[in-house]
Amino acid sequence: MRIKRYRGLFIQVIVSTLFISIVALFINNLSVNLLRAGLGLNFSWLFRSAGFALAEHPLPYSPSSSYAWALFMGWLNSLKVISSSLLIATLIGFLVGFASTGTNTLLRILSKLYVTLIRQTPLLLQLMFWYFVGFLSIQGEIFSPIKGMLSLSNQGIILSGINLSPEFSSLLVGLGIFTAAYISEVVRGGINSVPIGQWEAFRSLGLSENDGLYKIIMPQALPAILPGLTSQYLNLAKNSTLAIAVGYADIYAIGDTVITQTGRAIEGFLLLLLSFLLLNLIISNLMELLNKYILTYKQR
C-alpha cells in the first residue's frame, strides 16, 4: 500500500518537474534570444502618444493619447461587443433550445435547420456576410417601425437615439447568432438530461407545458447547462477577435496597429494575452458565482 502511494507521488513529482522545466526552458529561450537581438522586454513605449485615430471609443480619446489608453479603448470596445452579443446569444440560444425540445413540430424543424446551417459554416464567413452583404448593401432605411426609435440602414442600427455603427452591428448580430446555435444545443442537452419521468410527473399533476418547463424541468436542467454555457461564453469572447475582418476597433485590431507602429511584437502580444485572460476570467468568475447561487437555491 505504502509503495503504491509513493509511486503515485513519485510520478506526480516527475511530471510536474518536467512541466516546470519545459516552461522555464521556453522563458529562458525567449529572454536569451530577445537580449541577443537587442530587444529586452520594455514597456516604456506604452506611454508615448499613439498618433492614430479611432472610429469608436467609449471614453474621450484623441490621436495624442497614449498607446496604453488606445489599448484600453480597444479593451472596452471588446468588452462592449462581447457583453452585448452574449446577451443576444443567451436569449436566442435558450428560445431555440426550448423550441427544439418542445412539442411543436414546425418549431423543432426550424430550430434544427438553424443550428445545422450556422454550425456548418465558418464564423469569419458569417461575419463578412453580415457586414458586406447584410449591412453595407442596404439601400436607404429598410426597417424603421417606430420613427426615431429603431432604424436599420447601411449606417448601422439606431436604437432610441444610440447610433450603433455597421461594424459593431454586424459583429453583434454575427457573434450573437453564431454562439446562440451552440448555446441552444447546450440547453437541449441539459433539458434532455432530466429524466422523462419528471415530465410525466408534472403532466399528471395538471401543470401546463410552460409551467412545467420553468418550474420543474429547468431547475433540474440548469446545473447541467451552466458548464457548457460558460465555455460557449468564453468561446464568444475569443471569437470576438475576428472583429478586425469587419473593421471594428477591438483590442486585437488596435493591438495590431500598435505592434506595427512600435515594432514591439512580443510585449504587444503579451499584453493582448493578458487582456484576454482578464476578460475570460471575468466571465468565468461571474459564471462560477451564478453556478453557486443556483446550487444553493436548489438546496433550499
Binding site: 492614430f52 485615430a53 472610429a55 458586406f132 453595407l136 478586425i244 475582418a245 469587419v246
Partner: peptide, 18 residues
Amino acid sequence: PIKYQDLDQVIQGYSQGR
C-alpha cells in the same frame, strides 16, 4: 478611420459605400 486588416476589405468597404 474605418480600419480593415486587408487591402481587399478596404476596397470592398469603399466600393460598398461605407
